[in-house]
Design a protein around this nucleic acid. Structure first.
Length: 563
RNA sequence: CGGGGCGUGGCGCAGUCUGGUAGCGCGCUUGCUUUGGGAGCAAGAUGUCGGAGGUUCAAAUCCUCUCGCCCCGACCA
């Protein structure tokens, strides 16, 4: 490809809308342009990168035995009503009507359509197992789209759905996909980690997320360096602490005017934050519940929701009514409400908590003596240094970008939608199902987030829109340079290497800057002086300086580099 | 959804408080010079100042409504 026949839309200045580095670079490099909130046009260069990702995903999915098809973006509401997701999905599901006032949705995923297909086509166990996938545009009306294509409303996802006669076979395919995803992200040159994830109400052994590790990631991942344990912090178990130490202090009420946070109270009393207990008031339906976590810990809403069901934070008025005290000074002592203590709190002695009287806290509080023994449960987020749940080592926490998710759906959809097959004994059985997603567009952003420098993007070769950039110095003035550039371009094309020849009448600095910005991994410079000596200059994107290579060795060198 | 902020040539911004000729940088066009890390000089083009209504002799600027976008929060006892 020549730049004159292509579309380069690089920018020196950064649009004000961009917050994180991948978003800024994708705009500057001319990969994407925003059309509306969370909705982007993919320019030719960005599209090439997206297609490279798709190609790797497609190749590995096919290799793993999955079969590609394409399902519609616009789907009838009826199927969504059958699966109950019409009611369950909430405002993220974009709904609209056609001219006949019939309801439709813009697909966020395709469980309904594939299950509908399966119930029509897969009547016999002899057809199983089968795994269909497509790479298709998705729409989720995100509460807050941000970070460019990292969290956009419209995006491209590979979603696959497998159908099995029994659970054992689903588990086999699940492991197959775990391996396949590992291969895909490895091939894409990403630093990633597979982590155990929330299985929601479905249970089973199975849900793993694949996270690209990056500080800008929106998810927190807990892992043990001493083992292969890794889990989303939403899920990671905070292991039960040891036995409660004996009480030493007597309970005392101390004035703490204006000190409503654990941090302030601990500072005022000269005690470590770990001695304080934070009380969080929530409402579960009409019930007031007091949740207790240690002052330096954070409540885990997912764990709490699994424990007590859907809840919301109590209002000031509800707290006043239940405890006769305003927030900031509430605690379990004397409280005639349901109390759930994190297991760490349940094992504390001589702790500090609110006195249920404005302006006062209690010190030296002990369970059993000062307040009833609480119900203990795991309701906090793990923190660095917590013991790993598998007993091996201590947890560390890193941030990640979720780029893949595999899930054992079991019979949730097949039962809801009546998707059944006849087994060998002639009995009707609902399909065991798995689903497997990869965020194709998000991978492009995640790869940039992980690979960039001050000059721009540094693409892993499999994702780069072009593998090689050819920069001729004086293309329009110097016939030998032009001829050498054309020849190299043709030779690389013949070798199946995607090269971009910059034949614009630009100054060298502009061409260098653009090649660096758009992340081309390998660069060959052809100049009059080098040609006179029979050499070209080769430089990898990460190299500081280039090196001279005899002209005849350029193509073999690149073939070797691109292996 | 709650809070904050921003809409002025393609991009980044100033001008708004204190109403009075719409500006700067980048980019774009033309010419000359330049040519190994985002060139220099010169001459140009491009704006219904997000939209609607109002106040006024006069509105980018003041008022009302509206649309769009961005950021923060939704972990707080």
């Amino acid at each position: 490809m020549k730049t004159s026949k292509f579309f380069i839309a690089t920018q020196k200045e950064v649009p004000a809308e961009a917050e994180i580095v991948s978003h800024r670079l994708m705009l500057r490099a001319g990969f994407i342009r925003r059309l509306a909130a969370g909705i982007y046009t993919w320019l030719p260069l960005g599209l090439r990168a997206m297609r490279k990702v798709e190609a790797v995903v497609r190749e590995e999915m096919n290799r793993a035995g999955a079969i590609e098809l394409v399902m519609p973006v616009v789907q009838p509401a009826g199927l969504w009503q059958q699966s109950r997701r019409w009611d369950e999905y909430g405002p993220e599901l974009l709904r609209f009507k056609d001219r006949h006032e019939r309801d439709f949705v813009m697909q966020p995923t395709s469980e309904e359509v594939i299950t509908d297909l399966a119930r029509g086509e897969l009547k016999s166990y002899r057809r199983l197992p089968v795994h269909f996938y497509h790479i298709q545009t998705k729409f989720r009306d995100e509460r807050r789209p941000r970070f460019g294509v990292m969290r956009s409303r419209e995006f491209v996802m590979k979603d696959g759905y497998s159908f099995h006669a029994d659970y054992a076979d689903l588990e086999r395919e699940y492991r197959n996909m775990h391996d396949t995803y590992t291969r895909i992200f490895t091939r894409l040159g990403l630093r990633f980690r597979a982590v155990a994830a929330d299985t929601g109400a479905i249970g089973g052994t199975g849900s793993h997320e694949f996270h690209v590790l990056a500080d800008s990631g929106e998810d927190a991942i807990a892992f043990s360096p001493q083992s292969d344990y890794a889990a989303n912090v939403e899920l990671a178990e905070a292991v039960a602490p040891g036995a409660r130490p004996p009480a030493k202090e007597t309970m005392q009420k101390v004035p703490t005017p204006g000190k409503t946070t654990c941090e302030d109270v601990a500072k005022l009393l000269g005690l470590p934050l770990q001695r304080t207990v934070k009380a969080v008031a929530v409402m579960h339906e009409r019930d007031f519940v007091l949740l207790l976590v240690r002052g330096d810990h954070a409540l885990n809403e997912i764990k709490t929701q699994k424990l007590i069901g859907a809840f919301r934070f109590a209002s000031e008025a509800e707290i006043q009514q239940a405890l006769g005290c305003k927030a900031g000074y509430i605690g379990p002592v004397g409280a005639k409400v349901k109390v759930i203590a994190d297991r760490t709190v349940a094992a504390m002695a001589d702790f500090v908590c609110g006195a249920n009287e404005a302006g006062y806290h209690l010190t030296g509080v002990n369970w059993g003596r000062d307040a009833p023994e609480p119900e203990g449960a795991d309701i906090r987020n793990v923190v660095p240094g917590d013991p790993s749940p598998d007993g091996k080592g201590r947890l560390e926490i890193v941030r990640g970008i979720e780029v893949g998710h595999i899930f054992q759906l079991r019979t949730k959809y097949s039962e809801a939608m009546g998707a059944k097959f006849l087994d060998a004994a002639g009995a009707e059985q609902p399909f065991e199902m798995g689903c497997y997603g990869i965020g194709v567009t998000r991978i492009v952003a995640a790869a940039i987030e992980q690979n960039h420098d001050a000059r721009g993007i540094i693409f892993p070769a499999p994702i780069a829109p072009f593998a090689v950039g050819i920069v001729p110095i004086g293309y329009h003035k110097n016939a030998p340079v032009r001829e050498a550039a054309e020849r190299l371009h043709a030779e690389l094309a013949a070798s199946g290497i995607d090269a971009l020849l910059d034949d614009r009448d630009e100054r060298p600095g502009v061409m260098f800057a653009d090649m660096d910005l758009i992340g081309i991994p390998h660069r060959v410079v052809l100049g009059e002086r080098g040609l006179a000596a029979g050499t070209a200059e080769y430089k990898a994107r990460r190299d500081e300086k280039g090196s001279d290579v005899p002209l005849g060795e350029v193509v073999p060198l690149l073939r070797q580099k691109l292996g």
